[in-house]
Amino acid sequence: MEKKETHSLRMTPAGMRKGFRIACGAVFVVVALALLGCLDLPDAPNESQYVERVDVFLFQEGNQDSTLLKIRPNDSAVIKASVYPRQFKNSLTFRWLFCIGDSTTIIGDSLTYTIPSSPKIHDIPNALEVTDGVGNTIRKDFKVSVNMAPTLYTKTIPADGDTLYGNVHTSILFKWLSYDTDSFDENKLEHTLVIDGVEYPVGRLEEIMQSGFGEGEHTFQIMVKDSFGDADTLPVYRFYMLDTLGGSL
């Protein structure tokens, strides 16, 4: 009987390398097919904001209002958008909006918006929308206040240079008048009466009685301030007390 030779199967190094290449090729085909399938899907807008933050700043007569968005109505002003990161600002779309109730009107579409002098309510934006190239939008709501500084009439009691008669026991009437064209500041003006260099906050009062004036020259001054901190101040006025009673009651 013829004896058959048997051989055990052994993987040579060359065979192992060939098998590894075949396996890698199969994996590559699967991954490539998966990627091709993904390419058929439309790209969704990036969920993270392209613009991280947007702020607005107001400029009037070249000066930036760093604390309040407040303008004087007789002068035009420029409101400017600032976006972060800054390098993307040239590839963004800006929409300045005037919103009231459910109504929204686009009144500007650039990085800056000019508020005209003596503006109407619909000339002043109160929201800004910034949109990037893939449709992400970030919105900034704000309020611009139109404010006129308060004004003091120059006519006062006593008048500048008046001579009054009495002594330290005589009550003297100090009276003045201020006004503000802003309706939101109506009856909210705060006054300070300065007598002989001493300040007396008197709130919304526009007259006060004061005694204790000896014979000779005295000074007084009126200051007024509105709710935004804008103020008006009269110059220092002088009056003269002439004691005709000899210091008696």
Rank of each mutant, 00 (worst) to 15 (best):
Y165Q: 12
K70D: 08
L68V: 08
A23I: 14
L164D: 06
V236A: 09
K80E: 15
I138T: 10
A81P: 01
D43E: 14
L58W: 03
F88K: 11
S178C: 10
F142I: 11
T67D: 12
M148V: 04
G25C: 09
D132Q: 04
Y240N: 08
G216V: 11
L58R: 03
T6F: 12
L242C: 06
K4W: 01
N90Q: 02
H218S: 08
D132E: 05
T244F: 06
E2A: 14
G216H: 14
H7W: 11
D185I: 04
L242N: 09
T156F: 01
K188H: 13
D40R: 15
Y153F: 12
Y200L: 12
L173R: 14
V198Y: 05
G203S: 10
E207I: 00
K4N: 02
T192N: 02
H169K: 13
G247T: 10
G108Q: 05
S103Y: 04
H169P: 00
A14K: 06
P201L: 02
D102N: 10
I157S: 09
T131G: 03
P73E: 07
M1I: 04
K18H: 06
F59N: 07
S178N: 11
A14I: 05
G37F: 10
V236D: 07
I106M: 06
G203M: 03
V27S: 02
D196V: 13
F59M: 08
V134K: 08
L205F: 11
H169L: 13
L92Q: 02
F228E: 11
Q49M: 07
R86Y: 05
F239A: 05
E207K: 11
S211M: 08
M148K: 07
A32T: 14
V83R: 01
A34H: 04
S48M: 07
S91R: 03
D196H: 10
S117L: 09
Y50T: 13
E199P: 00
F88Q: 14
Y153P: 00
S82W: 01
E52S: 15
L33Q: 02
P158R: 04
K143I: 15
T170K: 14
V78M: 06
N187K: 15
V198T: 14
S76L: 13
C38M: 15
P13T: 02
K80M: 07
L164N: 10
D55C: 01
F174R: 09
R238I: 12
D182Y: 06
L39E: 11
P116K: 12
T181P: 00
E47A: 15
T156W: 00
K89L: 02
I115Q: 09
V130R: 05
V54W: 01
A159W: 00
V83I: 12
T114D: 12
M1V: 14
T131P: 02
M148D: 05
G214K: 13
E215D: 12
E206F: 05
G25N: 10
K225N: 02
W176T: 08
E190R: 09
T181K: 11
V144K: 02
A14N: 06
M16F: 08
S183K: 06
P119H: 07
D141E: 15
